[in-house]
Structures are given as C-alpha cells and as structure tokens.
C-alpha cells in the first residue's frame, strides 16, 4: 500500500501492530534461546501451565488440614517437610528445602523474602504482589507487629513473632493454629478455613463463623 495518504497510519489491514517493547524483548530472548536449542518450547508451555493451573494455595491447604487432623503427619512435616509434602504428589524443584513452622499460643511465624521473592511455590503457587513489594520485604523484619496489624492480625504482646527470611534453598510454610470450634471436623472441612495469607503468616486461619459470613455475602 502506498504511504502517501494522510490516513495510512490508521489503516491496520496491511500490518500487525507489534507488541509492547517489553513483550518484544521477551519474545526475542525466547526465540533466540529456542533457536540455539537451549530451551524447549514444550517445556516452557508446561511450566506456565503448571503455575497457572496446577500449583497454588489449594496444595498448602491440604497439607495444613492433614497436619491438624493427623499427629503422625504433623510430626513428619517437622522431621522431613519435603517428603511429607511430597506424599500428596507435590514435588518441589530440585535443591529447594521446605521447612514447616507451626504457630501456637505463644509463637507466631511470618515468612518474607528480603532479597527478592523466594516463596514456597510447591504449596502456595506464585506470590501475591504485596509479598514482592519493598514495604513488605523491609517492614516484615523491622516491624512485624505493625505489618500484621495492617492485615488485621493483632497478637497479644506476649506472643513471640518469628520472622523467617526465605532463600533460594530454604522455603517456609506456616502451619496456622487450628481454629477453636472445629472439633470433629474432617480434613476436607478444615481446608476451607486455611487461607494463603494464613500460610504466609500474615493472618490467622478463618474461624468457623467466617465461613458463615462468606456464605452470606
């Protein structure tokens, strides 16, 4: 098409609008690495599919609910978290060591990655935006009680807060306290009380009354 008319910029039939610069950078890197045989397109697709559809907090909820109902499993999580979590078929990446930290009446655990965004992907999926933000990364260590309060989590002054700084090798999963009033509940019922945030340690698990509120909304 001759580029002589004033409207040629507005005619989209003769070309395709290129993606944004950042998308073009990724596409270029990807096509080069594939061309050189360094990565395999099928592997890339499988990785995205896994993190978009197959890993997420639903995995962690199963681990926590079983820990709440099965003392042997709870002990196994303490002794060898990788193996205990792997019992569900949730396999971490090579070299990643999982550690489960339990909340109790006198101790509350909080997980952060001060360096970047290391996170227990196997059981929680990818981290939420706030976990990757500078305020959370710095303040979780400097002022954990203040951060918890912003999430609506107010702890008694005598409860010790333990902050765990994740690394590429060590990933932490918080086992929240089992809520009161759940005696006799099955693991499946209990899973509904476990939230992503409670497994990062910024909140407690839901109370049975919260489920009724959720249902009313």
């Amino acid at each position: 098409m001759p580029h002589d008319g004033p409207d040629h910029d507005h005619d989209h039939r003769d070309h395709t609008e290129p993606p944004s610069d950042v998308a073009l950078r990724v596409k270029s890197l990807e096509s080069l690495l594939i061309e050189k045989g360094l990565v395999d397109p099928a592997t890339l697709d499988a990785l995205v599919d896994r993190y978009e559809h197959h890993v997420g907090p639903q995995n962690g909820k199963k681990v926590v609910a079983r820990a709440w109902t099965d003392p042997d499993y709870r002990q196994w999580l303490q002794d060898d978290a990788n193996a205990a979590i792997g019992d569900f078929g949730f396999k971490g990446r090579q070299g990643e060591h999982m550690v489960c930290v339990e909340n109790g009446p006198k101790a509350h655990n909080l997980v952060v990655c001060t360096l970047c965004s290391c996170y227990p992907w196997t059981v929680l999926g990818l981290p939420p935006v706030w976990y990757k933000s500078a305020p959370y990364r710095s303040r979780a260590v400097a002022d954990p009680r203040g951060v918890l309060a912003e999430f609506g989590t107010v702890l008694d002054p005598d409860v010790e807060i333990r902050v765990w700084d994740s690394t590429s090798e060590m990933r932490y999963l918080v086992i929240p306290e089992r809520p009161a009033g759940t005696e006799g509940w099955t693991a499946e019922q209990l899973e509904r009380l476990v939230t992503r945030n409670s497994m990062i340690g910024v909140e407690k698990a839901k109370a049975p009354a919260d489920l009724a509120k959720d249902a009313a909304e």
């Binding site: 596409k27 990807e30 990565v39 592997t43 890339l44 993190y51 990446r93 070299g95 990818l126 590429s168």
Partner: peptide
C-alpha cells in the same frame, strides 16, 4: 510476556545454565 519470562528463567535453571541461587 510475564508468564514467558517466568518460564524461561525456570527452564534455564532446570537445565543447569545457572543455579537457583
């Protein structure tokens, strides 16, 4: 593109071109 960049880094780690650390 975020998913693509995510997958590329992890595929390269898995292949040992660089470590997770």
């Amino acid at each position: 593109w975020q998913a693509q960049a995510f997958a590329l880094a992890n595929a390269l780690i898995d292949k040992g071109f660089f470590s997770a650390e």
